[in-house]
């Protein structure tokens, strides 16, 4: 099962290593990870997407809490949240017709074309995971040269994260 965990940590060197080592030591593969400073520069937020069963995940959450540099851990299971990812996708252009099709598709997905060259375009798209994978499927039909995707950025809606 897919889980999103948000971890607030002290913004210090070595903290990311502590957290990734914790996952590695338990044989967990991190599906995606995004790290950034928060509104308070002394605190960073790590949003981690992992796949695994409940009991192992419960252990991981507890282990994260046990780390001295971890301030707070939120598992987004059972809470209402908003998640966004951003992808840059370089798509082949075989001919003018396919270029026009891509431009139309980009409009449908509310994505953006941010670069055009002779034989390819770079599309910027943001949204939740299902929107991004839907667009990716379409893009693959034209031939995808390269992609680069961020990890998820997640916040819970309103105060729903506190209820649980």
């Amino acid at each position: 099962m897919r889980h999103m965990i948000s971890v607030l940590v002290e913004n210090k060197s070595g903290v990311l290593a502590r957290i990734s080592a914790l996952f590695a030591a338990r044989g967990f593969n991190i599906a995606s990870l995004s790290v950034s400073e928060t509104e308070d520069v002394a605190i960073s937020r790590m949003t981690i997407v992992v796949k695994g069963n409940e009991s192992i995940l419960e252990q991981v959450t507890k282990q994260l809490n046990k780390l001295v540099d971890v301030i707070k851990v939120n598992d987004f299971n059972d809470v209402e949240y908003i998640a966004r990812e951003l992808a840059l996708i370089k798509i082949n252009i075989a001919n003018k017709a396919s270029r026009d099709e891509i431009i139309r598709l980009v409009g449908v997905f509310k994505a953006k074309i941010i670069d055009i060259s002779q034989d390819s375009v770079i599309v910027e798209i943001s949204g939740n995971e299902s929107k991004l994978s839907a667009f990716m499927k379409v893009a693959l039909a034209y031939g995808v040269k390269e992609t680069c995707k961020t990890g998820a950025s997640v916040l819970y809606r309103g105060n729903s994260g506190r209820v649980k």
């Binding site: 009991s55 419960e58 252990q59 507890k62 282990q63 809490n65 046990k66």
Partner: peptide
Amino acid sequence: IDPTAISK
């Protein structure tokens, strides 16, 4: 005292 020891 260690939550990670519980149900491990």
